[in-house]
């Protein structure tokens, strides 16, 4: 067998992308340091030691077949997918139909309307470290167009206690130059001329719960 060259023929899954349009919006204070011991402390009796390990890593999230959704955000569009067999539509998008009867059919992309309705909602008075200063946050799950699923995002331009199940919404994008291709590029707002219902017991209750949050946020640096 010596000297015989075996050539394997592989079917290519996809061509390797050539990335040409690049954008960086890394804040100046974000530095990748990798792993570093950055300090230690020892108890006064000399018995216990704590050591501080810092770790900072940049991740690449390859969106692959989901890319049109995130690219769409840059253009101020909400892209969904639908199944050409059963016509179910989704935002967040699915790359394949969820029905086993459709045999995981590869879906097609469709531009969704910039209208939605509230499926469920909450008023957050506490959150993760990177969101604390934006509190209180009205987080809703909304159904965009005829999507079969609900998508989470923030509802702005409303008093937190005025949110209602089923209320009609519009989707509002950040100015083009501020968009980063993430779901934070857009938020929901009530449709024009929408009027909240009068105050009631539940609204008073939410108002009472939320008021200290405004005060607390003011004290944050």
């Amino acid at each position: 067998m010596s000297g015989q060259q075996i050539i394997k023929k592989k079917k290519k899954f996809a061509d390797e992308p050539n990335f040409t349009e690049k954008k960086t919006y890394r804040p100046n204070d974000v530095k990748e340091t990798g792993l570093a011991f950055v300090g230690h402390e020892i108890s006064d009796d000399g018995k216990v030691m704590n050591q501080f390990l810092h770790y900072d890593q940049l991740y690449t999230i390859r969106h692959g077949w989901n890319s049109p959704f995130f690219k769409g955000l840059l253009d101020g569009k909400i892209m969904g997918t639908y199944c050409p067999i059963c016509n179910d539509t989704w935002v967040p998008a699915r790359t394949h139909c969820w029905r086993l009867n459709c045999n995981l059919e590869h879906t097609k992309w469709v531009e969704m309307p910039l209208t939605a309705k509230v499926h469920t909602w909450t008023v957050a008075g506490w959150s993760g470290r990177s969101s604390l200063k934006r509190l209180p946050i009205v987080l809703i799950y909304a159904i965009i167009g005829d999507s079969k699923v609900a998508i989470a995002n923030e509802l702005h331009k409303i008093k937190p206690w005025d949110v209602e199940f089923g209320m009609p919404l519009k989707i509002v994008f950040k100015p083009k130059e501020e968009r980063i291709g993430a779901v934070t590029d857009f938020h929901f707002e009530p449709i024009d001329n929408w009027k909240p219902s009068p105050m009631n017991k539940e609204k008073e209750r939410i108002k009472k719960l939320v008021e200290p949050v405004y005060e607390w946020v003011k004290t944050m640096k």
Binding site: S127, G128, L139, Y141, A152, E154, V183, T184
Partner: peptide, 19 residues
């Protein structure tokens, strides 16, 4: 990709479901 950066942490998701 869809939930973390929109102010989301688990108590908030659970609250929306519970509400």
């Amino acid at each position: 990709r869809y939930e973390l950066m929109v102010g989301g942490i688990y108590p908030i998701y659970y609250a929306a479901m519970a509400n």
